[in-house]
């Protein structure tokens, strides 16, 4: 390579960029698994706006704050009034804030998938060692992890507060673990449902509206069905209404698995049959969503 003229004329001591020509890459190529992991990390960060514009950080961070603020208040009150029990149980806290989890999902599931679809970046991924399955798995894992951060953080805050306030360690540890289990159930189911809906459209706005729509409509239907079935005697047959929406399904499942005290309302579970059905439905929905996503990307 000839020395560029600006290099020859530049006075000594000043920096000059030399064109050193093309250098082949001889370093390691880490392959599929590494690429999938990089995609997972990048997608997870992007769902909280990290590595993206300041504007895209606003909503996820606000929602994370809104998830945690009540937990901080509850903890502060409990410590100040020297209570020996938290006013809200850990899984119950997640059930009460499930609308926030839903909004986060609606806002970020389209970010996970629609961008790549809309700007037709998907073929670039698949022209690399990464396979369609790797892509779907990495994106599902990233969405699940993002939701897990959102739902597990308040549980951790509540648990830390309970210990600070000197509440019984054994009882709180057990129930905090129930809370984390519930958080995981929420994350897996919401991520599966949200991504399938988001993958259906390359338009982000439609994706947001569709995810919100699915969650709100199904929850409303579950609530109305429960109210209709719940006779004056409270026969327990109304609990089957829990299976009608993602949030009540998770509530019912966690209530059954962790043997939580019976609550009134959709999402409660009184019989083993309902609990087992909820478990089956949970597994079936998660698996079906995964297959649908794979199918969605098969034609690229």
């Amino acid at each position: 390579m000839p020395v560029p003229p600006e290099a020859a004329t530049a006075p000594p001591g000043t920096g000059v960029i030399h064109d050193i020509g093309y250098r082949p890459y001889t370093g390691p190529r880490l392959g599929r698994a590494h690429a999938a992991r990089a995609l997972f990390v990048q997608s997870l960060r992007a769902s909280y706006g990290l590595g993206r514009s300041a504007r895209s950080k606003v909503l996820p961070m606000l929602l994370l704050g809104a998830m945690c603020a009540p937990a901080l208040i509850v903890v502060a009150l409990a410590v100040m009034t020297r209570q020996d029990e938290l006013p809200v149980d850990y899984p119950g806290y997640l059930a009460n804030t499930s609308i926030l989890t839903g909004i986060f999902l609606a806002a970020q599931a389209p970010v996970m998938l629609s961008r790549d679809l809309r700007f037709m970046t998907v073929p670039l991924y698949f022209s690399r060692p990464l396979t369609r399955t790797d892509y779907v798995r990495a994106k599902t894992a990233a969405m699940t992890a993002a939701l897990l951060v959102l739902t597990a953080l308040p549980v951790v805050i509540l648990y830390a507060g309970a210990l600070l306030a000197g509440m019984p360690v054994g009882h709180n540890t057990a129930h905090a673990l129930y809370g984390l289990g519930t958080a995981l159930l929420y994350s897996v189911l919401y991520a599966s449902v949200g991504l399938v809906v988001a993958a259906a459209t390359p338009r982000r706005g439609f994706g947001v509206a569709a995810v919100i729509g699915v969650l709100i409509v199904s929850t409303t239907v579950a609530g109305i069905t429960w109210a209709l079935l719940d006779g004056p005697g409270g026969s327990g047959g109304a609990d089957w209404a829990s299976l009608l929406s993602p949030s009540t399904l998770v509530d019912a499942l966690s209530g059954w698995v962790f043997r939580l005290p019976h609550q009134d309302g959709p999402g409660s579970v009184s019989s083993g049959a309902v609990g087992a059905a909820a478990l089956l439905e949970f597994a079936a929905v998660a698996a079906a969503c995964h297959l649908l996503l794979l199918r969605r990307y098969r034609k690229f």
Partner: peptide, 29 residues
């Protein structure tokens, strides 16, 4: 390497960010 015929670039990221991401998707550290 493959350069598609159609547009494939997200408009809100810089060229550097985009190409770094694609390099990582090819398995580069």
């Amino acid at each position: 390497g493959y350069m598609p015929e159609h547009d494939c670039l997200p408009p809100d990221v810089s060229a550097t960010e985009f190409v770094v991401h694609m390099a990582r998707m090819s398995g580069l550290p």
